[in-house]
């Protein structure tokens, strides 16, 4: 099992800039497995864990749909609501960037800001991966022992 790892997020600044430039409400970076690993803007109104799981499912389903019509994938998904809209795009082929915004007239601006942020992230991502090898601070035997104790306690029969 090769884990997906991230480190001190250089993405936070990029996400803050994206929020500033696009006027969006929220931005989440989500792995293909459906885990949030960075976020920006206001997330207080949202269950980000469930959101990540649902969007990952939605994106992977859409990828299969794309293949059925002869595309590798649809790189952008746009969901329009009454008040809020969601723009989802793929970064470096593996991370989903979810942007929630309210003003529909800003769709173009959001799309532009997302594209720019995605380009920057694609550059930063390999550097972050390199650095994370130096930051591994988990003792695996201790981790396993303590986690197994917690499992015993939580799933008591």
């Amino acid at each position: 099992m090769t884990p997906v790892t991230t480190t001190k997020s250089p993405f936070e600044d990029l996400l803050a800039a994206l929020i500033r430039e696009s006027g969006a409400l929220t931005v989440l970076l989500v792995t293909r497995q459906g885990t949030v690993f960075s976020q920006g803007g206001d997330t207080s109104y949202m269950n980000t864990t469930a959101m990540a799981a649902l969007v990952a499912g939605m994106f992977s389903a859409t990828r299969e749909v794309a293949r059925m019509v002869g595309e590798d994938q649809f790189s952008i998904l746009l969901q329009q609501g009454e008040r809020r809209h969601i723009h989802i795009s793929l970064v470096a082929g593996e991370i989903m960037m979810i942007v929630v915004f309210e003003d529909q007239a800003r769709t173009g601006m959001v799309r532009h800001a997302c594209r720019r942020a995605a380009e920057q992230m694609a550059v930063v991502l390999p550097q972050a991966r390199e650095r994370e090898t130096m930051e591994k601070d988990i003792s695996l035997p201790a981790f396993r022992e303590y986690a197994l104790n917690l499992i015993d306690r939580i799933f008591q029969t």
Binding site: M1, T2, P3, T5, K8, T31, G34, F37, E132, E135
Partner: peptide
Amino acid sequence: MPYVGFHNKEISFKI
């Protein structure tokens, strides 16, 4: 493939 976030100190497994 577990998720390990060193910056947000989070590890998630999928069952």
